[in-house]
Design a binder for these strands. Structure first.
Length: 811
DNA sequence: AGCACGCCGACT
DNA sequence: GTCGGCGTGCTC
């Protein structure tokens, strides 16, 4: 018998191994098997299917072992992997990398074993070699990682190579399972004393060891109230010592037992729905149920604070009642303690949280519990899609428009929203997309009647939509360009006086986005990217916001040698600084990629703001995600031009989403929410829509524009960057690509899309490649990238790059 | 992903 | 003349 195995590597296809007779009964699709690939590398792969006949073109090797008594996942997951690999142009092994928690992907770890038999002469060894030899003689074996701690990382491999040559040690390859069950010791009464008489007998005839008796009594008391007693709990509650317990254990009065416990804190498994829906919500819920009767996917377009989550909760409850599982997807950033608490309150022990930053042991536990059907609801980021659901009833994709649903690096470059739709179809499950600002592609699918559409236009409770006011920046002195206009300052002051909070939105990090040489107008740019360098005052550095490269502050103009630069425009750092100067008595904080490095910083800052220990919060788009601030009554968009003034109309959708999301932060509880937008082009179409929260019309506008440009409605962003030392080559490449895209996107508008687009893209890429100079490294890289959804091509530092970034396509 | 093989430039 | 860098291809 033979098996096709998925190995967690980017192999061009799956390989086949043969099964020795004694393992025949153990193999089945979904189990892990230990196999040798290449010379002596061992991997734990997953059996995709069992093949009856021997392959012809090669001689398969035997599998070494079967690692699982039962499959790790169901066939629906294997189907999903196959689809993702095909659709997003990667190998199934790469999908496996993303899907399976590290602790289930056994790691091959090389261990150096001390060769007892061989002697050595210290004079023959270099310092580094001697160091390792000594350690080996002492410990008999060393892991490679330990050697690395011992030596300078750069010389590890050469030194080991030498030692092996000198026969001082050898390498042992072994597969190790890292996942360990966490156990806890439980204490219980020995069987002999389980009945009342015997226990009374024991207590009445107690002699000596009064301390032990104390502990025993404490145990008896505890067991009455708690039911089960752990060792740690008992010792803590009774204040007893280990010795006392040991005595009782030795006398066989109490017994200790180690039990595996769950890492996930056990919550009662009940559902507590303690709210009622508003009439508008009830109506939306009924509409969702109805559309889902005959459509697989429905989009819930609900303005911010319209209470979408409560509708989700009702739907989740229904699914649990039917014994089905639910996957609730959120963008990673929105997975805050706040959201989690909210869901946990209603679903207690039925729910699990899952995202890639979880510790590996917890991930394995959730994996197993989802597989067994123990967990009914998973609240997770995109990686939660790969959990082995058993009976999936529904997938909810909240904040459906969020770009972070698309994985960019590494492969598989999948879009969680679209993958979710496919995954759900395998179960016959329903999908609910939710957003206050749906993506154009989802909206388009509604218009095409492919998805159902339910709109929830009013905010929950008495809250109204915030009033949006435009401030004409041209009315105020042009230089220096004002960061805060007088009306804005007044409004902030009014909020401060009313003890309210303000969010100031500026979608640019750093202090100054670029700087200009006063004499010749030269602007410092990144060496590798076509991007100006942003000055960061706190770090006193120049940073490329595209690739992240850091440069020292430039004192001398590289073009003319002069020393005077002018800082142009402003970023969050400068806004924060100016706020401090303008409102010295207010408490100000900044929230952007630089100020919140870890996840904890983010949570901590949110907490501070929630508790009203911050009055003014400056931030980039980070402030628009996953926050529910009750005391905010003013949101300021300081520099709307910075979001709107692109020649590329395709940015409109993004600009609208940003503004709409920002304005959604204002005035959630009371009616006084206000949004101030400082802008120079008051006539900008996006602003007209934003002003009245008219999403549908913006969409019509977008669609119309895109049609006029032969541009497909549901490919949101295609960016082409061509660079070449020789300008005409770059231009030619750009031209060919643009032509190709234009000719074929007409067809794309009316037909099933993605495969076509991929073929076209590849075809034209090849054409470009043929015209470019024969640079083997460049061509090779291109070939490699062509197999990926996102094409990023570059060749070293001096590069020509083709960046094509198509968004994922609805299924 | 690793690893071997092979092809060119910098050295004993 | 060899050492060693990297580019290329292969692993059932």
């Amino acid at each position: 018998m033979f098996v096709e195995v998925i190995i967690p590597l980017a192999l061009p296809k799956n390989y086949t191994w043969s099964v020795p007779p004694h393992l025949l009964d153990a193999v089945q699709p979904g189990v892990r098997v230990e196999v040798v690939l290449g010379r002596n590398k061992k991997y734990a792969g997953i059996v995709k299917r069992v093949l009856p006949s021997k392959p012809e073109s090669f001689q398969p090797k035997d599998i070494l072992n079967v690692l699982d008594p039962e499959p790790l996942l169901y066939t629906s997951q294997l189907q999903l992997w196959e689809w993702v690999a095909d659709y997003y142009m990667c190998s199934e092994g790469e999908v496996m990398q993303a899907a399976v928690p590290a602790n289930l992907k056994l790691s091959s770890e090389s261990v150096l074993i001390w060769n007892e038999a061989a002697g050595y002469a210290p004079s023959d060894l270099s310092d580094a070699e001697y160091l390792v030899t000594e350690a080996l003689e002492l410990k008999k074996e060393l892991r490679l990682s330990e050697v690395q701690q011992l030596l300078d990382a750069a010389v590890v491999y050469p030194v080991i190579k030498k030692l092996i040559e000198k026969n001082i040690c050898y390498v042992w390859e072994e597969l190790k399972q890292k996942y360990k069950v966490k156990t806890e010791t439980y204490i219980s009464l020995a069987a002999a004393y389980r009945n009342e008489d015997q226990l009374a007998d024991l207590l009445n005839n107690w002699s000596r060891a009064p301390k032990q008796m104390e502990l025993l009594l404490a145990y008896l008391h505890l067991v009455k109230t708690a039911g089960e007693v752990t060792k740690a709990e008992l010792l803590k509650k009774s204040g007893a010592s280990d010795a006392q317990l040991k005595g009782l254990l030795e006398k066989n009065i109490l017994v200790a037992e180690k039990r595996a416990i769950d890492r996930i804190s056990p919550l009662p498994r009940n559902i507590a729905i303690d709210f009622t829906l508003s009439p508008a919500q009830e109506k939306a819920l009924a509409a969702i149920r109805e559309t889902l009767e005959h459509k697989q996917v429905t989009l819930l377009h609900g303005v911010t604070a319209s209470g979408k989550t409560q509708i989700y909760i009702k739907l989740i409850e229904e699914q649990i009642m039917q014994g089905k599982q639910v996957l609730y997807l959120l963008p990673e950033i929105a997975l805050t303690a706040q959201t989690i608490r909210r869901l946990q309150k209603h679903f207690g022990g039925y729910i699990a949280i899952y995202h890639s930053k979880f510790n590996p042991n917890e991930r394995v536990e959730i994996w197993n519990k989802v597989k067994s059907g123990d967990i009914k609801v998973v609240l997770g980021a995109r990686s939660a899609l790969f959990l082995p659901f058993r009976e999936l009833g529904m997938i909810i994709t909240d904040e459906e428009h969020d770009a972070s649903y698309k994985q960019q690096e590494p492969a598989p470059r999948y879009h969680a929203r679209d993958t979710a739709i496919y995954y759900a179809s395998l179960f016959g499950a329903k999908v609910l997309l939710g957003s206050a600002t749906p993506s154009v592609e989802s909206y388009f699918n509604c218009m095409q009647d492919k998805y159902g559409l339910v709109t929830l236009a009013e905010r929950f409770g008495d809250a109204g939509l915030p009033a949006i006011e435009l401030i004409d920046i041209k009315k105020y002195p042009a230089k220096p360009k004002p960061v805060f206009t007088p009306p804005l300052i007044d409004a902030i002051q009014a909020s401060l006086d009313a003890k309210k909070q303000v969010i100031i939105f500026q979608n640019r990090r750093g202090y100054a986005p670029y700087q200009v040489c006063d004499t010749c107008g030269w602007i410092p740019q990144c060496r590798d990217c076509d991007v100006t360098l942003t000055y960061h005052k706190t770090r006193n550095q120049l940073v490329c916001h595209y690739c992240g490269t850091i440069y020292p502050v430039i004192q001398t103009c590289l073009a003319c040698g002069n020393h005077h630069f002018t800082q142009k425009n402003f970023g969050t750092e400068q806004v924060e600084e100016l706020l401090g100067e303008t409102f010295p008595e207010a408490r100000t904080a900044r929230m952007d990629y630089d100020s919140v490095k870890g996840k904890h910083d983010h949570d901590a800052l949110i907490k501070l703001f929630e508790q009203q220990r911050i009055d003014l919060l400056v931030g980039t788009q980070m402030v628009v995600k996953g926050l529910d601030f009750e005391h905010v009554n003013l949101v300021c968009i300081v520099d709307a031009d910075g979001i709107l003034n692109f020649t590329d109309f395709r940015v409109n959708e993004r600009a609208f989403q940003l503004m709409e999301q920002v304005s959604g932060r204002a005035g959630r509880k009371d009616d006084e929410g206000k949004v101030l937008i400082q802008v120079s082009n008051l006539q900008h179409p996006v602003l007209q829509f934003v002003k009245d929260h008219r999403y549908a019309e913006l969409f019509e506008f977008e669609l119309h524009n895109r049609k006029a440009f032969d541009y497909p409605p549901y490919t949101r962003l295609i960016r082409l960057v061509f660079k070449h030392r020789e300008k005409h080559i770059a231009e030619e490449a750009a031209h060919i690509m643009a032509q190709g895209l234009k000719t074929h996107f007409g067809k794309y508008l009316s037909g099933p899309a993605q495969p076509v687009v991929d073929r076209i893209r590849n075809q034209y890429l090849w054409e470009i490649l043929l015209k470019l100079p024969k640079d083997s490294r460049f061509i090779h890289q291109c070939k490699k990238e062509i197999h990926q959804q996102t094409v990023i091509i570059q060749s070293n530092k001096r590069y020509r790059a083709v960046v094509i970034q198509p968004d994922a396509d609805p299924v």
